[in-house]
Simulated scan of single mutants.
Amino acid sequence: MATPKDAKDMFDNLMPQALAKHPDKAREVDAIYFFDITGEGGGQWTVDLTADPPSVNAGDAGNAQCSITVSNEDFQTMLSDPQAGMQLFFQGKLQVTGDPMLATKLQQFLEVVTAG
């Protein structure tokens, strides 16, 4: 299992590799996400799982259907514990704007990324 050292490693290295390796799995999610990961090791990325091939790019492309804001520390927790997302959301540590149903679909894709 590939474990990123921080969100930057995840979005700059692991996610592009996973998208290239499993484009079909990415397109099953069929959504555009914007991630705003705060704190050290964080940053902003747009992940387009509707594109052919799916892509991840630094910054906000302005076309996200679902935006996720979370600290790098809490993001790491979400990666290691798939159930943590809901807990973080209800604690106010994970903000989701746009289509909340897409946030639930995101977990299935993150599992593909962290599986390598």
Rank of each mutant, 00 (worst) to 15 (best):
P82K: 12
D36H: 03
K5D: 07
V70P: 01
A84M: 06
K25P: 01
P16K: 12
V56Y: 03
D30H: 06
F75N: 04
A115Y: 02
L79D: 04
L94G: 04
Q87P: 01
F11M: 12
D30M: 01
F34Y: 14
V47Y: 01
K105S: 09
R27M: 05
M86A: 14
D36C: 00
A84T: 06
T50A: 14
F90H: 11
F75P: 00
F34A: 05
E28H: 11
E40W: 05
K21N: 13
R27E: 05
K21L: 06
A31Y: 02
F34Q: 08
E40Q: 15
A84V: 04
M1E: 10
V96R: 03
N13E: 08
K8H: 10
L102T: 00
G59D: 08
C66I: 04
K93T: 04
T104D: 11
W45R: 04
G41E: 10
E111F: 10
A61K: 11
Q65M: 09
D36N: 13
K25H: 05
T69D: 05
T46P: 06
M15V: 09
Q65P: 02
P54G: 13
F75K: 01
D24A: 13
S55Q: 14
D24H: 13
D48A: 08
V112M: 07
A26D: 07
L88K: 07
S80Q: 13
Q65I: 08
D48R: 07
G59T: 12
E111L: 15
F34V: 02
D30K: 04
G98C: 01
I37R: 00
P23A: 13
C66G: 09
Q83S: 13
V113F: 08
A26P: 07
N63V: 10
K8R: 12
L19Q: 09
M101S: 09
M10W: 15
V56S: 15
A58C: 03
M78G: 09
D48S: 07
A64P: 05
A61W: 02
Y33C: 04
K5H: 09
T69N: 09
A18N: 07
L106F: 05
Q65R: 06
P100I: 15
D9G: 10
W45D: 10
F89T: 12
I32A: 02
F90N: 15
Y33T: 01
T69H: 08
G59I: 10
K5C: 05
P100R: 03
G62E: 11
V70S: 03
Q91T: 01
G116W: 02
F35N: 02
H22W: 11
E111I: 13
F75Y: 06
G41N: 09
T114M: 14
P4A: 11
Q95E: 08
F109L: 15
K5I: 13
A103Y: 03
T114R: 12
A64D: 00
